[in-house]
Structures are given as structure tokens and as C-alpha cells.
């Protein structure tokens, strides 16, 4: 029996490859159309991860690079949400990885030469597996905006990069999350690669007062949706339904 296919990606919802206001995309975008491929075993399988692949505190960016007794400078946030598929079903036990600049907008990367200072207690990456309900959480600091060489005065909004696997190589996704109310979002050529303003809204983490920890840290909620899967009409099985 052929396993059910994943829903086709809506390529009008995602950014197109060629988005000239984001200048690097001009020479890095294919000019010929993608060849559509029906799912085979190569696409419906994908890597899976176990709790033993990662360590307990990998999702705590407040401590995972801090020196003894140290703590990063910046706005302490709890970033949490769920990974769902397009059928609104949770995606459990999937790997979520994040990376970000520090509160000054400086990345801990040998190629980042921005004036903003490195924070000796902040690395800037984290990872976690979703639980049985597809839920995940990180503790971190809110990243700062930073300038980049695109237009002469372009600034990225505060953002966190997010990588998710799902259960199949066809679901693999990298995106960026932004923060509610940031006036730089509307001005960013990378955000604007996404043609539909409703789709942009899906990348904006919402202030979540209910999960905010009084006198400790403020919370943002960011749900991630991966490709869904067709039902198998003539089989009584759990996956995909």
C-alpha cells in the first residue's frame, strides 16, 4: 500500500526564489522552474532524533553558554509554542533548533564584524524536542536589531531563526520569527520576500501575558505549522488522519 502523500507546498504562500529587493537572492535563485515530484520513500522518510541526541539544558540560552554565576544581558524571554501540521495535529518528538543575535544585535560568529558588543554569557543557539503535544519552549534574551549590507541603511528587525524537521524530509523548514509590534518588520526586504501580508503575520510571535513569569521573564508565543498529510481513505491508520 502506498503511504499517503504530504500536501503540496503552496509556493505562492512561501517567498519566491527571486526577490530582487533582497539583493543576494538575485544570483542565488534558480531561473528554471522546480520539477514537481510526487512523494516517494525518499521524501516521506526523514531523520528522527532521540532525547539522547541532545542535552537537558540545550534549550536554555540564559545558561547554556553562561560562565559560572553569569547571566546574559538583555530582556529575558520565554519563547514557547507548538509544532502542528496543516491538519492542526501536533508533531511530537521533532527537533526544533534556534539561533539568534544577542541583545546588542551581535552574532557570535567569526564572520560577524558588527560594532555591537559580544556578550560573554551568551552563545545564541538552542535546541529541543517537542513533547507529546508538539509543545516546545526556550529561555533566552530578546535579540537586538542589526544593520546589514543590502540597502545602505537596512536593519533587520529583532528575529530568531528557527529550524524544524517534522517526520519527513518533505517537511523540512527553516524560517525566522519576529516580535509583535516591531516597526522594522514592515521595512525589511527579507520579510517582504513573502508576498502575502497574511503569511507575514504567521511569523510574528505574540506577547503572551498568560505565560509571562512575574518578576522573572516575559513570554512570547510562536506556533509552527508544517506540511500536512492526506488521509488514507481506505485504511484505518493513525498517521495522516
Amino acid at each position: 500500500m502506498t503511504p499517503p502523500d504530504y500536501f503540496s507546498r503552496d509556493r505562492r504562500w512561501h517567498p519566491p526564489a527571486f526577490t530582487p529587493d533582497y539583493k543576494t537572492s538575485v544570483s542565488r535563485s534558480p531561473r528554471l522552474p522546480l520539477l514537481s515530484l510526487e512523494n516517494t520513500a525518499s521524501e516521506i522518510t526523514g531523520p528522527t532524533f532521540a532525547p539522547t541526541d541532545i542535552a537537558e539544558g540545550d534549550n536554555d540560552l540564559l545558561t547554556n553558554f553562561a560562565r559560572d554565576g553569569g547571566s546574559p544581558i538583555g530582556e529575558r524571554i520565554l519563547l514557547h509554542g507548538r509544532v502542528l501540521d496543516e491538519n492542526a495535529r501536533p508533531v511530537p518528538n521533532t527537533l526544533v533548533e534556534i539561533w539568534q543575535a544577542n541583545a546588542s544585535g551581535r552574532y557570535r560568529h567569526k564572520k560577524d564584524g558588527y560594532l555591537g558588543a559580544l556578550d560573554p554569557n551568551f552563545g545564541g543557539c538552542g535546541r529541543v524536542l517537542t513533547d507529546d503535544n508538539g509543545a516546545y519552549a526556550f529561555r533566552t534574551v530578546k535579540p537586538g536589531a542589526y544593520p546589514w549590507r543590502n540597502g545602505i541603511n537596512d536593519w533587520r528587525p529583532a528575529h530568531i531563526h528557527v529550524s524544524v524537521f517534522g517526520s519527513a524530509f518533505a517537511q523540512r523548514l527553516i524560517t525566522q520569527l519576529y516580535f509583535e509590534g516591531d516597526p522594522l518588520i514592515a521595512r525589511c526586504p527579507i520579510v517582504s520576500t513573502i508576498p502575502d501580508p497574511v503569511a507575514v503575520q504567521q511569523l510574528i510571535a505574540r506577547l503572551d501575558m498568560n505565560e509571562t513569569r512575574p518578576l522573572d521573564m516575559i513570554a512570547y508565543r510562536f506556533d509552527i505549522v508544517l506540511r500536512g498529510r492526506r488521509s488514507t481513505m481506505f485504511e484505518n491508520r493513525m498517521e495522516g488522519n
Binding site: H14, Y107, G124
Partner: peptide, 16 residues
């Protein structure tokens, strides 16, 4: 639901 839209991994993808 709609799939979360993709964004570039950027130049500092290695950090993560």
C-alpha cells in the same frame, strides 16, 4: 492551517 512560510537561513546559519 497554512504552512509556516520559509525564510532564508541567512549567513550565520552555522551558529544554530
Amino acid at each position: 492551517l497554512k504552512e509556516t512560510p520559509s525564510q532564508t537561513a541567512g549567513p550565520y546559519v552555522h551558529i544554530g
